[in-house]
């Protein structure tokens, strides 16, 4: 698999070649090649222990690769100059831990000073995550969701060029999750590159431009969700709602189509169909429309793609 396809590596905001990292005998990351384009919303997914966190920590310069080259915004993460690059990076760790003694505004001011930001935009960052009303409240009084939002506000300080978000929607309610992804979309439109990990695949499948699936320390596959679906050639799933007295006739009518598998469900029938046979199945369904009460079509989910590639 060529993870760099469709990406000119000299343009890449994240550019990894042959990146390896061992912990004693364990090869946590092995030979990762990856390019992430400017203004891209990129997902990094994988089982626990697949190497995501190690790769993430190397991208942030928190860990040195044992081998290979890893450049962020054109700078090697091991170079002294990477210190300045960090000013343009926003990072939200998986379990964000902030300081209970500080209030929201003081928390952001502390991180803004560490980032040496002249115009940190603390008020804007708080407003963006919906915490303007809680600016003076001590963090110890914050709920998990509010802490997560404050952590996100911290990552947004100074309008970073790259955002690294590790499980960013942990503890957020559905409304906050929607707001979070809306903010990410705005940032992407403004040219910010976003790299995120998530275990909630349904949440990111409609939102990322591309993603990489990691397994056993390497990148198993990389591309857009649609491209990965096509690459895996997973079947489409049709759910047909059929009255009990019509099931036999509908089953008979759909039998014999190449590659189509039929199953009974409490509400009717489920038909798994190769992508290439979709129109043929639809035509057959049309001829049986008098007996079919409803039809829904499911594309393979990101979860299907994930399991397809990680098995």
């Amino acid at each position: 698999m060529d993870a760099t396809s469709r990406t000119r590596s000299d343009d890449a905001v994240v550019h990894a070649r042959g990146v390896c990292r061992r912990y004693g005998p364990v090869e946590a990351v092995r030979g990762v090649d990856l390019d992430i384009r400017p203004g891209e919303l990129f997902g990094l997914i994988g089982h626990n222990g697949a190497g995501k966190s190690t790769l993430f920590r190397m991208m942030l310069g928190l860990l040195r690769p044992d081998a290979g080259s890893l450049r962020i915004d054109g700078c090697e993460t091991t170079a002294p100059a990477f210190r300045d690059t960090r000013r343009h990076i926003g990072y939200l760790p998986e379990n964000v831990v902030l300081y209970d003694n500080l209030n929201a505004e003081e928390t952001l001011r502390f991180f803004a000073r560490l980032k040496r930001l002249e115009r940190p935009g603390i008020g804007d960052a708080l407003a963006r995550v919906g915490l303007a009303h809680a600016a003076r409240r001590p963090v110890r009084e914050f709920s998990k969701g509010m802490r997560q939002r404050l952590g996100f506000a911290q990552a947004l300080l100074g309008q970073p060029r790259i955002l690294f978000l590790d499980e960013p929607t942990n503890g957020l309610d559905p409304e906050a999750i929607a707001g979070f992804y809306a903010t990410l979309a705005q940032l992407r439109d403004q040219g910010t590159t976003v790299v995120l990990t998530s275990h909630i695949l349904a949440e990111i499948q409609q939102r990322v431009d591309r993603l990489a699936i990691m397994a056993s320390g390497g990148i198993r596959v990389c591309g857009s969700v649609q491209a990965l679906r096509e690459q895996l050639d997973l079947p489409l799933v049709f759910h047909l709602r059929v009255a009990a007295q019509d099931r036999a006739a509908v089953t008979e009518g759909l039998t014999g189509l190449a590659g189509v598998q039929l199953e009974d469900t409490p509400a009717g029938l489920r038909a798994r169909c190769p992508r290439a046979g979709k129109m043929q199945l639809l035509a057959r369904v049309g001829s049986l429309s008098a007996r079919i009460q409803d039809l829904t079509l499911h594309e393979p989910s990101l979860e299907d793609v994930f399991f397809g590639f990680s098995d």
């Binding site: 928190l62 831990v97 902030l98 980032k115 911290q154």
Partner: peptide, 14 residues
Amino acid sequence: ERGSLDLLLSMPIT
């Protein structure tokens, strides 16, 4: 142990 060290070290601080 709390997990805040990574966040601090992701800042431009040695």
